[in-house]
Design a protein around this nucleic acid. Sequence first.
DNA 1: AACTAGGCT
DNA 2: GTATAAGCCTAGTTG
Length: 405
Amino acid sequence: MPLIPLLAAMVKEGVGIDVEFFEKMSVEMVERISQLKREIFDIAGEPFNINSTQQLSEILFKKLDLPHEGLRKTKSGYFSTAADVLEGLREEDETGIIVAIVEYRELGKLKSTYVDALPKMVNPETGRIHTSYHQTGAITGRLASSKPNLQNIPIRTEVGQQIRKGFIARPGFYFLAADYSQVELRVLAHISQDKALKKAFLEDQDIHKTTAAAVYGIPVEEVSYNQRRFAKAVNFGLIYGMGAYRLARDSDLTLAEAEEYIQAYFEQFPGINDYLEQTKLQARQEGYVATLLGRRRYFPIFKASSRINRQFEMRAEREAVNHRIQGTAADILKIAMIQLHDRLMVKFQAKILLQVHDELVLEAPENELENVRALVVKTMSSAYPLDVPLKVDTSSGRNWLELKD
DNA sequence: AACTAGGCT
DNA sequence: GTATAAGCCTAGTTG
């Protein structure tokens, strides 16, 4: 079956949520939010609209006169109140308003976007939530999901996890989630043919630890938690074309140190550097780049370039580098979805409900669970064989949070 | 409709 | 000298 009918089947199947659970959560959140609101008004000395970034900026940087030298400004000229900016103010802020605002923002976001919105989206006919999937939603070939977007359900924070708990499988069924482990780095290993990166995946090493060991020139056993975390950020960042500037900003390194680190990185993984350069060159010369399966992305900017375009050309280079990786991963999961759906239809009740870029969520009757798990792993792992293995992790549970191996 | 912010991979 | 990490969707404010 082609992809579109499969997406239609997923949309039609929908996913179940516990409406009462969300309603209770909403009530609890209202209490905490009011409390935070009072605190914030107290410190500010007056009530104002905390949701207004303009008003908030005036309160923080004019009325309370928090240190704002060199802080980022928005297009409209106000000092930014984005989370990363506030984070930088937290230590110097003795009033406690920053901490309160950050919590207020988190709760407000989760409440308005998920806790209050999702129950309203339950279809009265089916009692379930039906997203829309868009095959051409993303320029790289990824799907997009909307109304509601089920590809950005929270997971990071404590409260976010509570929201996942509100997604529940039908009686007698289990959710089964299967995700590709580090699929984009594996795609990069394949496309770039970088020797060290391929070796790491072929030996099923902890890729971030291996990277850290290589770059710092130390044995794998001696890699510290922070060194691994840092290497992870770099591995991740380079898929998006991160530069030394951003690396320095996001770490404790100076610009020069960040440059040295990246240089050391490319010395250890020269194939990756070649991949980056070759892809940028191709975008410039051919005006497009393509994924492994041939999905093209065009870059008309390189046709008519002038000095003004330099900024945009740099961006286009990063987009080209990312397209081949993100797009190839997307192509592979789409192939897996089609194969899996066809195979499930033969002898299982289990159905694919959701796709979240490198992950599928299925709903399976309890008695099918282990057989379906094996089928999903096999199908996803072999959908489009690369020169490195595609590793698939699975988990299952009665709700979307309690997914365990 | 633009802007700002923030949720996810 | 200047900007500096990809791809989405949604909510609230502003004008």
